[in-house]
Simulated assay, not measured.
Amino acid sequence: MLVPSSQDHLSLLGGLYKDHHLWLFRWLCKKLNCREDAADTAHETFFRLFSFTDLSSVQQPRALLVTTASRLMIDDARRKAVEKRYLEAFLESGAEDAVAPSPEKLAMITDTLFMVAQVLDGLPEKPRTAFLMSRLEGLRYAEIAERLDVSTASVKKYVATAMVHCCRVLGHTDDVFA
């Protein structure tokens, strides 16, 4: 299979945009009930197609656009949920003198937490929970073992499993297996 040249790829993408942007925008307006969010998501959808290697093989462009846009909406919903949980935790922390993070800082924190959530998403519950208790709450393995009602050796195994998983997902396998 030949990968189209950059000019061919841009031409195909431009054709997709011309032929389907308005349709996608209207579809997103119905889904999101907000013209601005629909416009942003439509443009982000086409932007994502820049990395699609062979647009000439696309037989159902609207299906590709809907799938891509749907994934963007899911990611956005997850990101908003992470942001909401962070802000709730911030408010519950009781730090009355603390200043709420700026929008830029909040976006950076949300992006980081979202990335961590995505990395940990593929882990079974106990390794994920043990890892978070260890890294975020700073608990000792004995405390984690007590809370999870398992042995300290199991906690060590869970945390090691989580660390190896994170390194694999992030592409740092050399660091783990050196």
Rank of each mutant, 00 (worst) to 15 (best):
F50H: 12
T67R: 15
S56Q: 12
L49F: 06
L65P: 00
T45A: 07
A38I: 00
S51V: 10
D40S: 08
A69G: 04
D75L: 08
M73P: 02
S56E: 12
E36H: 07
R62T: 12
L32M: 09
T45H: 05
D75Q: 07
L24M: 08
A42K: 00
A69P: 00
V58H: 01
S57F: 09
C34F: 02
W23L: 05
L28H: 01
L24W: 02
C34E: 09
W23R: 04
V58F: 03
Q59H: 13
W27F: 09
T45N: 00
R62F: 15
R35V: 09
R35M: 08
T41I: 04
L22H: 13
L28W: 00
T68Y: 03
F52N: 04
S56G: 10
W23K: 04
F47T: 10
A63S: 15
A38R: 02
P61L: 07
L49T: 05
T45V: 06
P61C: 07
K30F: 08
S56L: 09
T45R: 00
K31F: 06
H43Y: 12
L64Q: 01
L49P: 01
F47L: 13
A42D: 04
F47Q: 13
F25D: 02
L64G: 03
R48N: 09
H43N: 14
M73N: 06
R35D: 10
S70F: 09
L64Y: 06
R26M: 06
L32V: 08
T68C: 03
R35E: 11
P61S: 07
A38C: 05
R48F: 04
E44T: 10
S51Q: 15
S56H: 14
R62G: 07
F52P: 04
L22W: 10
M73F: 08
A39H: 12
L55I: 08
R62H: 13
F52G: 00
A42P: 01
W27I: 02
F47E: 12
T41C: 06
